[in-house]
Simulated scan of single mutants.
Amino acid sequence: MAKRTDLQVVEVDGFGTVSLRPDSLRTSVSVEVRGEDLKAARDEAATRTRSIIAALERLQIPSLQVRNVNISVTPISEGEREPASTAPPRIIGYEATSWISVVLEGVSIDALRVESSRVLEAALSAGANQTDGIRFFLSAPREAYRAALKAAIEDAEKSADAIAKAARIKLLGWRSVSTAGEEGDGRAFKGAAEALGSTATTFPIEPEEIRVTAAVKARFRFAEE
């Protein structure tokens, strides 16, 4: 959209988009186990967690970051209470859940293709029974946004030139420029192999390109020809 104002300026919007291959991946896997008592559930979750971390470390992937980020234990109650009952429900066991975060940053697209599948295969084979799949992202989102911003400014210049020709006015130069709206999130994840459940994966995973966008609002001074 463009408009002519009383300040002798032309105001235009500019939009820019860059599509880049991701160079990083993130996933989280978890172990959910049940036991008759608190210690049994907690110990089983801890044992499986150590097994998963060891399996991922054996992959010997340079720069792979693996860490246990959280563990929780929840009591399991016996059914529903009778409406008139005031007694608390009887606890019949415990469920322990352990979450493991896996991150690989700053690698080639070929490495992402290969290692994403290996990471999930190793984790699920070692005892993980839940995963949110692989998500890909850019390790340098600011650089991607700056490239999109440059494209947005160039788009604004072209729009202003087109308006000047159509309106038979002469552009005198920039008056102001500002970003419009929220910054495009270069770390926005592209998902792949979502919700795999407890089934191991042997199929290849193809990382999709990530689109980073930017928008500007520019004002150009002009004079009548």
Rank of each mutant, 00 (worst) to 15 (best):
K158A: 10
W174Y: 13
A87M: 14
T199P: 04
D110Q: 12
D155K: 06
I163Y: 08
S178K: 15
A122G: 02
L172S: 08
E143V: 15
R221G: 02
R50W: 07
P88F: 12
T97H: 04
I134P: 00
S19T: 14
A193P: 06
A223M: 10
A214R: 04
A140T: 04
R135F: 07
P75E: 08
I153H: 08
R26N: 08
W174F: 10
A111D: 11
R90T: 14
A84R: 09
R58Q: 12
G184R: 01
G173M: 06
F222R: 02
S198T: 09
G93T: 05
R219Q: 14
P88L: 14
L56D: 00
I163K: 01
K217E: 10
F203C: 10
A87V: 15
V18G: 03
L171W: 03
L149R: 10
A96I: 03
A148P: 03
R118C: 05
P88C: 13
Q60D: 13
P141R: 06
R113L: 06
A200Y: 01
A156P: 09
E225F: 00
S24E: 03
E80C: 07
R187S: 15
S85K: 02
A162S: 11
R4L: 15
I91P: 01
K170R: 14
V33D: 07
S117K: 07
A180R: 15
D13C: 08
G127V: 01
D110P: 07
E154G: 03
T131M: 00
R34P: 03
I52W: 00
A84K: 09
E44V: 03
S117W: 02
I163V: 15
W99M: 09
Q65K: 12
L196Y: 04
K165T: 10
P88M: 12
V12T: 10
V114I: 13
V119Y: 04
L120F: 07
R58T: 05
L138Y: 01
A45P: 03
R118I: 05
E36S: 11
K3N: 12
S30W: 04
L138E: 05
R34C: 05
T86W: 12
I134G: 02
Q130P: 00
I91H: 10
R34K: 15
A164P: 09
K165S: 13
L38H: 07
